[in-house]
């Protein structure tokens, strides 16, 4: 799920950045530091959309660095247990399949794939129903439900299931082609 929230961060800035462009420097450093990182509480920071306020700088004794408390608006992405997500399949093997939704990696085990779907080995491994009408393979899009999440410093791991109503393949570029 995406959220547009306000976060705060203390930015350390070297005095060589002081001057007319101080604010711009502060913002570009903030973007570099924050965008693409994860936190357990907020999830993955997708983009900074605006700066709310830049507080008063505080000179650190002994060094010339200055700390600015910056409040910024950003879009974050955080998967939740029970959430329905759409993801692209990246790897299929006999244990199940891996899928990605942006920065989130999801594993759907064989146990949580409907029982009527059988694994087919080969150079394009896939899970196929007995009548061959539905096929999960690399690159196809699936709708799945998250049953567990873990957020690391740089990555988000999820365990998902497609063993439920209205879950499974939503489109298959290989079949369409």
């Amino acid at each position: 799920m995406f959220f547009h929230i306000v976060l705060e961060r203390n930015m350390q800035l070297h005095p060589r950045f002081f001057g007319r462009n101080l604010r711009e420097n502060l913002v570009s450093k903030l973007m570099k530091d924050v965008e693409g990182t994860c936190s357990g509480r907020h999830g993955f920071v997708v983009a900074i959309t605006g700066i709310e306020s830049v507080g008063k700088g505080l000179i650190r004794d002994g060094t010339a660095f200055v700390t600015f408390p910056v409040k910024y608006q950003c879009v974050v992405f955080r998967p939740f247990k029970g959430e329905i997500l759409e993801a692209v399949v990246t790897l299929v093997n006999k244990m199940g399949f891996f899928a990605e939704a942006g920065p989130v990696q999801i594993f759907v085990s064989k146990h949580l794939i409907p029982d009527d779907m059988e694994f087919q080995a080969g150079d394009m491994p896939n899970y196929t129903t007995s009548d061959g009408s539905v096929k999960i393979q690399k690159e196809c899009e699936v709708r799945l439900k998250i049953i567990g999440t873990r957020v690391d410093a740089t990555e988000i791991f999820c365990v998902g299931t497609i063993k439920d109503d209205f879950l499974g393949v939503i489109n298959d570029p290989a079949a369409a082609a």
């Binding site: 306000v6 705060e8 509480r41």
Partner: peptide, 27 residues
């Protein structure tokens, strides 16, 4: 600490509990 910031936390926490309880009842 700078990351533990105000209102958005509560929102996230709230949503999580909501979603959890929801999935509890459904599955």
């Amino acid at each position: 600490s700078p990351v533990h910031s105000s209102s958005s936390d509560d929102l996230a926490a709230f949503l999580e509990t909501e979603l959890d309880s929801d999935s509890d009842s459904s599955s």
